[in-house]
Deep mutational scan, measured.
Amino acid sequence: MSIQHFRVALIPFFAAFCLPVFAHPETLVKVKDAEDQLGARVGYIELDLNSGKILESFRPEERFPMMSTFKVLLCGAVLSRVDAGQEQLGRRIHYSQNDLVEYSPVTEKHLTDGMTVRELCSAAITMSDNTAANLLLTTIGGPKELTAFLHNMGDHVTRLDRWEPELNEAIPNDERDTTMPAAMATTLRKLLTGELLTLASRQQLIDWMEADKVAGPLLRSALPAGWFIADKSGAGERGSRGIIAALGPDGKPSRIVVIYTTGSQATMDERNRQIAEIGASLIKHW
């Protein structure tokens, strides 16, 4: 067993022997301040990774656009098919120029040779490549099948209805392509620590998230040296922004954090800054 596999296998073990965790309302004060600064709703939840206990939450059962955070769930569904012998990570998928959609920095470079399922998941999570996500959605049967996968996990809230990039439209009061912070946090925890996926697939999923290259201005910008984070960000229309993450000190994750916002007129930089400040408060009061 590799060191990384050992780390993920012992996530519940280490967490069980940690000192009790206590909620700190100071972080919620910052979440509410972010709402004021952005002029928009902000949803927040913080779960203990081992027990699933909610440590703090704000608007945990209000719907927010998922945006690209759905790509972690998508690759979880792909990995479940791999575990069941219905898919192979090494299978190569070929596609054409007509398949390319807006923001496809990886797939646009491989029109000639195609990409493997493993490479597509890596591109979808680490670079948020939209064509990679659409190609992977095709392998599982489309958005409705991802929703069905989530329902089978016990998540009857999260739903995907459309493809990239239309799913980022974020129309107010439109339930399409949305989740709730509580539902997303619980589902992410199941994917990373539950028995739904094999140990190898859980490790692969967290490795992809740990290698995320496009979430630097968010929670990662607030992390002290030595902290662990595996995350996936999302951005959408109407001032929408979000991030889902597993993080913790001492090089291992111990909490799940989900943050979503929508309806702001603020710039992307300002949305990023507010999420980073929430992260800084979380870490300060850990």
Rank of each mutant, 00 (worst) to 15 (best):
M1C: 01
I3K: 14
I3E: 06
H5W: 05
F6H: 08
F6K: 11
F6L: 11
F6Q: 09
R7D: 07
V8T: 14
A9Y: 15
L10Y: 09
P12T: 12
F14T: 10
A15H: 08
F17D: 03
L19A: 15
P20D: 15
V21P: 05
F22A: 10
F22P: 05
F22W: 14
H24C: 09
T27Y: 02
K30V: 11
K32Q: 15
K32G: 09
K32N: 10
A34K: 04
E35H: 02
D36R: 15
L38Q: 06
G39I: 09
G39D: 12
G39C: 10
A40W: 06
R41V: 09
V42H: 02
Y44S: 01
I45M: 12
I45C: 14
E46G: 05
L47W: 03
L47F: 07
D48Q: 08
D48W: 03
D48G: 06
N50R: 13
G52W: 05
K53R: 14
I54F: 11
I54G: 04
S57V: 10
F58T: 09
R59H: 08
E61C: 07
F64D: 00
P65N: 04
M66W: 01
M67P: 00
S68T: 00
T69G: 02
V72G: 03
V72E: 01
L73Q: 05
L73I: 15
L73Y: 06
G76A: 13
A77R: 09
A77W: 06
A77Q: 14
V78Q: 03
L79E: 02
L79F: 04
S80R: 11
R81F: 09
R81M: 08
V82K: 06
V82W: 07
D83N: 05
Q86N: 11
E87H: 04
E87F: 08
Q88A: 13
L89F: 08
L89K: 04
L89E: 06
G90Q: 11
R91F: 05
R92L: 12
S96G: 13
S96E: 12
S96T: 12
S96W: 12
Q97A: 13
Q97C: 08
Q97G: 12
D99E: 14
L100G: 03
L100H: 04
V101N: 07
T107L: 08
K109R: 14
K109G: 14
D113V: 09
M115F: 04
T116F: 04
E119G: 10
L120Q: 02
A123S: 10
A123V: 07
S128N: 00
N130R: 00
A133T: 12
A133I: 00
N134A: 04
L135W: 02
L135Q: 07
L137V: 08
T138F: 10
T139R: 11
T139G: 12
T139I: 14
I140V: 09
I140S: 05
P143T: 07
P143S: 06
K144D: 14
K144F: 15
E145K: 13
E145Q: 14
L146S: 01
F149G: 04
L150R: 00
L150T: 08
N152R: 15
D155T: 01
V157L: 10
R159D: 06
R159L: 05
D161K: 03
R162C: 07
E164R: 01
P165C: 09
P165H: 05
P165W: 05
L167S: 06
L167K: 02
N168M: 06
N168P: 02
E169L: 13
A170V: 12
I171L: 15
P172S: 12
N173G: 14
D174L: 04
D174I: 03
D174N: 06
R176M: 10
R176N: 08
D177L: 01
T179A: 03
M180E: 15
A182T: 13
A182N: 09
M184P: 00
A185P: 00
T186P: 08
R189T: 09
R189S: 13
K190L: 10
K190I: 08
L192N: 02
L192H: 04
L192S: 05
T193M: 14
L197I: 08
T198S: 13
T198M: 10
A200W: 07
A200M: 11
A200R: 14
R202Y: 05
Q203R: 14
Q204G: 05
L205N: 01
L205G: 00
I206F: 13
D207N: 11
D207S: 15
D207M: 11
D207I: 10
E210Q: 13
A211C: 15
A211N: 12
D212L: 02
D212I: 02
K213C: 12
V214S: 07
A215K: 05
A215T: 06
P217Q: 12
L218D: 03
L218N: 03
R220F: 03
P224D: 06
A225K: 14
G226Q: 09
F228D: 03
I229F: 04
D231L: 04
K232H: 00
S233F: 01
G234S: 07
G236T: 05
R238T: 09
R238K: 13
G239C: 03
G239W: 01
G242H: 02
G242L: 00
I244Y: 02
A245E: 00
A245H: 00
A246H: 04
G248Y: 01
P249E: 08
G251F: 08
P253Q: 08
S254N: 13
V257K: 00
T262M: 09
G263M: 06
S264M: 05
A266T: 13
A266G: 13
T267G: 14
D269V: 12
E270D: 14
E270T: 14
R271S: 08
R273G: 12
A276G: 09
E277N: 11
E277G: 10
I278G: 00
I278A: 02
I278P: 00
I278F: 04
I278E: 00
S281E: 14
I283T: 09
H285F: 15
H285N: 14
W286I: 04
W286G: 02
